[in-house]
Protein backbone atom coordinates (compact mmCIF):
# COMPACT_ATOMS: atom_id res chain seq x y z
CA UNK A 1 0.00 0.00 0.00
CA UNK A 2 1.36 3.34 -0.97
CA UNK A 3 -0.43 6.45 0.19
CA UNK A 4 0.80 9.62 -1.45
CA UNK A 5 0.66 11.68 1.77
CA UNK A 6 3.50 11.19 4.22
CA UNK A 7 2.90 10.78 7.94
CA UNK A 8 5.67 13.31 8.56
CA UNK A 9 3.81 15.93 6.52
CA UNK A 10 0.57 16.01 8.53
CA UNK A 11 -0.35 17.23 11.98
CA UNK A 12 -3.50 17.39 14.08
CA UNK A 13 -5.73 19.90 12.33
CA UNK A 14 -4.40 19.32 8.81
CA UNK A 15 -7.39 19.80 6.52
CA UNK A 16 -8.11 17.49 3.62
CA UNK A 17 -9.38 18.98 0.36
CA UNK A 18 -13.18 19.16 0.70
CA UNK A 19 -15.67 18.27 -2.01
CA UNK A 20 -19.32 18.66 -2.94
CA UNK A 21 -21.05 15.61 -4.39
CA UNK A 22 -24.28 16.10 -6.35
CA UNK A 23 -26.98 13.43 -6.05
CA UNK A 24 -30.17 13.19 -8.09
CA UNK A 25 -32.75 10.46 -8.66
CA UNK A 26 -30.70 8.93 -11.47
CA UNK A 27 -27.72 8.67 -9.08
CA UNK A 28 -29.88 6.72 -6.64
CA UNK A 29 -31.25 4.36 -9.29
CA UNK A 30 -27.70 3.65 -10.44
CA UNK A 31 -26.54 3.07 -6.85
CA UNK A 32 -29.52 0.78 -6.18
CA UNK A 33 -28.52 -1.36 -9.14
CA UNK A 34 -24.82 -1.47 -8.30
CA UNK A 35 -25.34 -2.19 -4.60
CA UNK A 36 -28.40 -4.41 -4.83
CA UNK A 37 -30.31 -2.21 -2.36
CA UNK A 38 -33.71 -1.72 -4.01
CA UNK A 39 -35.56 -0.38 -0.96
CA UNK A 40 -38.30 1.81 -2.54
CA UNK A 41 -37.64 4.71 -0.12
CA UNK A 42 -34.67 5.42 -2.40
CA UNK A 43 -36.63 5.75 -5.66
CA UNK A 44 -40.39 5.79 -5.03
CA UNK A 45 -41.70 9.10 -3.69
CA UNK A 46 -45.18 7.73 -2.95
CA UNK A 47 -43.69 4.92 -0.85
CA UNK A 48 -41.26 7.26 0.91
CA UNK A 49 -44.07 9.61 1.96
CA UNK A 50 -46.23 6.69 3.06
CA UNK A 51 -43.58 5.68 5.59
CA UNK A 52 -43.27 9.23 6.93
CA UNK A 53 -40.29 10.56 5.00
CA UNK A 54 -40.40 14.04 3.43
CA UNK A 55 -39.41 12.65 0.01
CA UNK A 56 -37.11 10.05 -1.55
CA UNK A 57 -33.86 9.79 0.45
CA UNK A 58 -30.38 8.69 -0.58
CA UNK A 59 -29.06 5.32 0.55
CA UNK A 60 -27.09 5.80 3.75
CA UNK A 61 -24.37 3.67 2.22
CA UNK A 62 -24.24 6.01 -0.79
CA UNK A 63 -23.65 8.97 1.53
CA UNK A 64 -21.00 6.98 3.37
CA UNK A 65 -19.31 6.11 0.07
CA UNK A 66 -19.26 9.76 -1.06
CA UNK A 67 -17.91 10.98 2.28
CA UNK A 68 -15.19 8.34 2.08
CA UNK A 69 -14.08 9.60 -1.31
CA UNK A 70 -12.34 12.60 0.15
CA UNK A 71 -10.25 10.23 2.26
CA UNK A 72 -9.35 7.91 -0.62
CA UNK A 73 -8.70 10.85 -2.97
CA UNK A 74 -6.38 12.38 -0.38
CA UNK A 75 -4.55 9.14 0.37
CA UNK A 76 -4.32 8.23 -3.32
CA UNK A 77 -4.39 4.51 -2.53
CA UNK A 78 -7.87 3.50 -1.29
CA UNK A 79 -6.16 0.52 0.36
CA UNK A 80 -4.62 2.97 2.85
CA UNK A 81 -8.02 3.20 4.59
CA UNK A 82 -7.80 0.69 7.44
CA UNK A 83 -10.98 1.61 9.27
CA UNK A 84 -14.01 3.65 8.32
CA UNK A 85 -17.15 4.17 10.37
CA UNK A 86 -20.16 6.49 10.46
CA UNK A 87 -23.46 7.04 12.23
CA UNK A 88 -26.43 7.92 10.01
CA UNK A 89 -28.00 10.90 11.75
CA UNK A 90 -30.16 12.61 9.10
CA UNK A 91 -31.26 11.48 5.66
CA UNK A 92 -30.13 13.17 2.45
CA UNK A 93 -33.44 14.19 0.90
CA UNK A 94 -33.38 14.04 -2.91
CA UNK A 95 -36.16 16.01 -4.63
CA UNK A 96 -37.32 15.14 -8.13
CA UNK A 97 -36.21 18.36 -9.81
CA UNK A 98 -33.36 19.33 -12.11
CA UNK A 99 -30.99 19.98 -9.19
CA UNK A 100 -31.43 17.09 -6.76
CA UNK A 101 -29.33 17.41 -3.60
CA UNK A 102 -25.73 17.98 -2.65
CA UNK A 103 -23.52 16.33 -0.05
CA UNK A 104 -20.79 18.68 1.19
CA UNK A 105 -17.86 16.89 2.77
CA UNK A 106 -14.91 18.23 4.74
CA UNK A 107 -12.36 16.39 6.86
CA UNK A 108 -9.30 16.96 8.96
CA UNK A 109 -6.64 14.99 10.75
CA UNK A 110 -7.91 14.57 14.31
CA UNK A 111 -5.16 12.43 15.84
CA UNK A 112 -1.76 10.96 15.07
CA UNK A 113 -2.21 7.36 16.20
CA UNK A 114 1.00 5.42 15.69
CA UNK A 115 4.26 6.81 14.38
CA UNK A 116 5.68 3.38 13.53
CA UNK A 117 2.57 2.25 11.67
CA UNK A 118 2.17 5.81 10.26
CA UNK A 119 -1.55 5.80 11.07
CA UNK A 120 -3.74 8.83 11.61
CA UNK A 121 -7.39 9.34 12.45
CA UNK A 122 -9.34 11.57 10.12
CA UNK A 123 -12.68 13.06 11.22
CA UNK A 124 -15.24 13.77 8.52
CA UNK A 125 -18.14 16.22 8.37
CA UNK A 126 -20.91 15.64 5.82
CA UNK A 127 -23.78 18.07 5.31
CA UNK A 128 -26.78 18.28 3.05
CA UNK A 129 -29.26 21.15 2.92
CA UNK A 130 -27.40 22.74 5.85
CA UNK A 131 -27.74 19.73 8.16
CA UNK A 132 -25.17 17.24 9.33
CA UNK A 133 -26.09 13.89 7.81
CA UNK A 134 -23.34 11.77 9.39
CA UNK A 135 -22.13 11.60 12.98
CA UNK A 136 -19.01 9.96 14.38
CA UNK A 137 -17.65 9.78 10.85
CA UNK A 138 -14.05 8.67 11.21
CA UNK A 139 -11.39 6.86 9.27
CA UNK A 140 -8.03 5.40 10.21
CA UNK A 141 -5.56 5.86 7.38
CA UNK A 142 -2.04 4.51 6.93
CA UNK A 143 0.15 7.18 5.39
CA UNK A 144 3.46 6.86 3.60
Amino acid sequence: MTARIAYADVEVGTELPGAVFPVDRATLVRYAGASGDFNPIHWNERFARDVGLPDVIAHGMFTMAEAGRIITDWAGDPGAVLEYGVRFTKPVVVPDDDKGAEIEVTAKVAALLDEEARTVRVDITARSAGQKVLGMARAVVRLA
Binding site: G60, M61, M64, P78, G79, V81, L82, E83, Y84, G85, V86, R87, F88, M136
Partner: peptide
Protein backbone atom coordinates in the same frame (compact mmCIF):
# COMPACT_ATOMS: atom_id res chain seq x y z
CA UNK B 1 -33.29 1.83 9.58
CA UNK B 2 -29.52 1.79 9.35
CA UNK B 3 -27.99 3.26 12.52
CA UNK B 4 -24.21 2.87 12.39
CA UNK B 5 -21.80 1.29 9.97
CA UNK B 6 -18.12 0.47 10.39
CA UNK B 7 -15.44 -1.41 8.46
CA UNK B 8 -12.09 -2.58 9.88
CA UNK B 9 -9.81 -3.91 7.17
CA UNK B 10 -6.92 -6.38 7.32
CA UNK B 11 -6.51 -5.77 3.59
CA UNK B 12 -8.62 -4.29 0.78
Amino acid sequence: VHGDQKFAYSRP
